[in-house]
Design a binder for these strands. Structure first.
Lengths: 342, 342
DNA sequence: TTGAAAGCGGTACCAA
DNA sequence: TTGGTACCGCTTTCAA
């Protein structure tokens, strides 16, 4: 029974083409094509015949073939640097589902290292994606390549610099300022900062934002370098404490994951949070709100940002002449229990 | 400067074709094609000329077009149910990177609800992916569709039932038995179980495994229903406690996320873990090892499982006649601090 | 509304 | 090793 019956060549068993359907329905191949292309002029009767035959044969139009003429693949490349960063899965899930809702498919590229970008981009050109959403570091030259290849692109949480590309991001400066102002007001004076990896755009931006916000209060801060993960949150706090020599009121972490690590490190050192040390993060990932952490942080409006990214890329695909746009969303302060705020 | 120079029609500015390259290199179009197809016979000299012209023009072969003749798109569909479940991002990252290393691209489908599977599968057929890795619930009929469409498939953490498809999974029975045996030996008698959502294959399997393992010790357990998330871990433990009326030694959670929720709930109720209550999970996600939780759990060998899935799907793509295979990996016990073990 | 035929951008087989 | 040519499966004029 598992043996495939030697089907007569007149009846194609798998992957039938529009010709097969046409023959079975007794119409021309063009008619079949029109049935699957919305807006084509076709009579109800013909359409019914064709759809019936298609169903019987298990026919689905070949997206590759149709893409050849239409110059539309229906695919959007999504390029993400670190899927393991707790924040990106949420973004990816949102973007994928929204694109899917709008009838677009996601060609996913996950970077292990920044050095892979070159090879990735080659694939992006080869697959003739209709557009791309990029949440990874691109050089100005790489951004220009998108323009040159006429592939609309939306950058996620990074700026396009001077290049004419769209972007959606969460306001780092506004967020850090919100945190810093409230903490200063609450009496904090000795600040430490835990940075992200140097090649992370938001990482650098947030650190700079924190420094600037503190400077506005004539305060400065020690910076320890982390890389966005739990372990570097722990070691980072350890280093800040060591460097500060007992003088440390507050730590601003470039993301939540490190803040969580820092919280655990503080706990391990029997430092009372927030009484003796305030720790804040940035992102608003799920674990930040878990009872054991209750992190004070800035929540990115992931859903709205993802919706914006999808909307923008689809708009530019539909009309490439539509000008690029940079949208910067404000994050919202989550008052957890990890910091004393004013 | 931003104005595109009206390029002479002799020099195509974007998306040049193999004909453009051929003309520029002074060779035939076939020669260009061969340059980009490994294993084709072509002289070094011609190849150099072609590659030079291609580089100058910014030419990359159109994957859609080549897919038409080769009947290979170079894409593997990855279908995942809940990207928000903390476990899947790890899997997705692993699979994507490994496929990428092997020269395959990922067409990603994320299900919001099981009801979407139908539409998703239609897209899978349309895009003529070379194969699929599925970590979502499929009905037997849907699994059969893969066979019918001759799309090799590897199921991830679910069984193919009677259908001839490959699968890779982590041994639920072995894992739960390991936990149960050690806990029983350590003196636990009153067990509670926190189940996953009913449509989750591993969820059900793990619950059944826990029940069976307990039965082997002539023990039974109360079951509270959860849905794999943090909140249901908290509420689930609350319910188990209520139902047990003071008699609860240990809780077996169908995944780590719920176990973490349960730990926090226990903490909120001032129940000392593991002295007065043992809580264990399943998966071995990153947060499970965070200092505040130190969850005792079974770690799935994510990397090996992902590697196996990729290897299996590529093998079946390369040789469709290669028989399906079910690979069941043993998980490893992580002795955290959330359970008293023998 | 319909069918015939010319592409779309490659691949593969063929003879040279 | 090369170039010519018939496809691959669909879309899109263009007449009928």
């Amino acid at each position: 029974m598992t043996e495939a019956p030697a089907s007569p060549s007149s009846e194609p068993s798998v992957r039938p083409t529009s010709y097969d359907v046409a023959k079975r329905a007794g119409v021309s191949q063009s008619a079949v094509s029109r049935c699957f292309r919305p807006g084509s002029s076709i009579s109800k009767k013909t359409k019914a015949k064709v759809l019936k035959a298609a169903r019987e044969l298990g026919y689905f139009p070949n997206a590759m073939a149709s893409g050849l003429m239409t110059r539309r693949t229906g695919m959007v490349a999504v390029i993400i640097s670190s899927l393991t960063n707790l924040y990106y899965p949420e973004v990816l899930a949102e973007i994928t589902q929204r694109l899917s809702d709008k009838g677009a498919r996601v060609l996913l590229f996950a970077l292990r290292a920044e050095s892979e970008v070159g090879e990735i981009l080659e694939q992006v050109w080869r697959y003739r994606v209709d557009g791309a959403i990029v949440a990874a570091h691109l050089s100005p030259e790489q951004i220009r390549q998108f323009v040159r290849h006429e592939v609309p692109v939306v950058l996620y949480n990074r700026s396009g610099g001077d290049e004419p590309v769209s972007s959606v991001s969460c306001d780092s400066f506004g967020g850090e300022k919100l945190l810093v102002d409230k903490m200063v007001k609450a009496g904090h004076r000795s600040f430490g900062i835990l940075s992200g990896p140097p090649d992370s755009f938001v990482g650098c931006e947030r650190v700079q934002a924190a420094i600037d916000s503190l400077a506005a209060h004539s305060l400065n801060a020690a910076v320890a370098s982390g890389n966005f993960d739990y372990a570097s949150g722990r070691s980072g706090l350890a280093q800040l404490i060591e460097d500060a020599g007992g003088q440390l009121d507050a730590v601003l972490c470039a993301n939540d994951l490190m803040a969580i690590g820092a919280l655990d490190e503080a706990r391990a050192r029997a430092i009372t949070v927030p009484d003796n040390l305030s720790i804040v993060g940035f992102d608003g990932v799920a674990p930040a709100s878990w009872e054991s952490y209750r992190l004070t942080t800035i929540r990115q409006p992931v859903r709205r940002m993802s919706a914006a990214a999808v909307e923008m890329i689809l708009a530019r695909i539909a009309d490439p002449s539509c000008p690029p746009e940079a949208r910067n969303f404000a994050g919202s302060l989550i008052e957890g229990a990890s910091a004393r705020l004013a």
